[in-house]
Amino acid sequence: MIDLFAGCGGMTSGFVAAGFTPVLAVEHNLHAAATYAANFGEDHVRWADIATVTDIPRADVIIGGPPCQGFSNLGARDVEDPRNKLWKEYLRFVRAARPRAFVIENVDRFLASAEFALLQAETAPGGLLADYTLTPGVLLAADFGVPQRRKRAFVIGSRVGPIPLPAAAGEWPGVRTVLSGLPETPARTTLPSSSVEFFGQRVPGRFKSADLHLGRNPTALSLERYRAIPPGGGRFDLPDHLLPRCWREKKTGTTDVMGRMRWDAPSLTIRTEFYKPEKGQYLHPEWHRPITHLEAARLQTFPDTFEWCGSKIEIARQIGNAVPPHLATALATHLSPHL
């Protein structure tokens, strides 16, 4: 398998668990590439702009999610955003590696984008993907053992006959399955002072899971707000005297902001700023604090054996941007018989 726009390796983690062997990974962010290398080896990783990578081996499968900020509901949805053109680099790799199948992951808006329409057009006679059949759809991570209501678009391309998307695998797990048993009060607020060398560069790391159980130093006002939020609640549960002016004057809007999880339900989508309760439903289901980096990684189903490189902010980005490994394993296991 080849992993493009590999990030820290969430998708690779799932495919390796299902028996696949990575032969190439491409990632332009140094800290994410270092995390990938720490877990899967440095020899097959290219820390580079994907447009500059020309040594492309053959592979059975190509996986990856071209950056999606232009498609995302959270972004400007700019069709001319150069990040939206990176899927064309993905196609270059498909043409060179000739995989039996490929998997593209993106935000669900991708399926309604101009780029996806152009991708479909390339499967017509004479197109770059004329011998591939596309199967697009949306998968919900909670349907595949991930304690998170994370909804993403997936496109399976195949030249060995149509491959459907996997079917939902079971009941939704609650956050209790991964959050229980961790200390209420994290022992530290900063990562240990250590560094490691990858690609000839020194980066912070390697950090173990226990190093990621990081607390914050909230103000007295923030603590008062946290205490006022019930399980499953959010900013609309705050009394007027605890509301910041912008929320007091805006009675409508996102309901998950300053939200608290429920023990026996999946979390909402873990994004890159999960350590900020004002950004989403990121309060611990019981304790009066936001979830830690370790708890976010567990909600994404990263194993505790996974190692991390980068600053707190960089690691948070890696966690929030990743494909949950358990979802990737379900995809890989589903693909294998077709290959």
Rank of each mutant, 00 (worst) to 15 (best):
I2V: 14
D3S: 14
A6D: 05
A6V: 03
G7E: 03
G10K: 03
M11E: 11
M11S: 12
F15L: 04
A18H: 02
T21I: 12
A25D: 02
E27H: 02
H31I: 00
A32W: 01
A34C: 11
N39T: 13
N39M: 13
D43R: 14
R46N: 02
D49C: 11
D49I: 14
I50V: 15
V53Q: 11
T54R: 15
R58S: 15
G65W: 05
C68H: 02
R77V: 08
R77P: 04
E80R: 15
K88M: 12
E89F: 05
R92S: 06
A96H: 11
A101W: 01
V103E: 02
E105I: 00
A112Y: 07
L119Y: 08
E122L: 08
A130C: 12
D131G: 08
T135R: 02
V146W: 03
Q148V: 00
F154Y: 15
F154H: 07
R159C: 13
P162H: 12
I163T: 05
P164E: 04
P166C: 06
P166F: 07
A167M: 05
G174I: 07
V175K: 01
R176I: 03
T177G: 00
L179S: 03
A187Y: 07
T189K: 12
L191S: 07
P192Q: 07
S193C: 14
S194E: 11
S194R: 15
V196R: 07
G200C: 00
Q201R: 15
G205Q: 06
F207R: 08
L214I: 13
G215E: 01
A220L: 10
A220S: 13
Y226S: 09
R227W: 04
I229C: 01
R235S: 01
F236M: 07
P244D: 13
E249Y: 02
E249D: 14
T255N: 04
D256M: 01
M258N: 01
M258W: 07
R260V: 02
R260W: 06
W263M: 09
R271Y: 09
E273S: 12
E273W: 00
E273I: 08
Y275M: 13
W287H: 15
R289G: 03
L294V: 11
Q300C: 05
Q300K: 14
E307G: 11
G310F: 06
I313A: 15
I315S: 09
Q318F: 13
G320M: 03
N321A: 04
H326N: 14
A328L: 06
A330L: 09
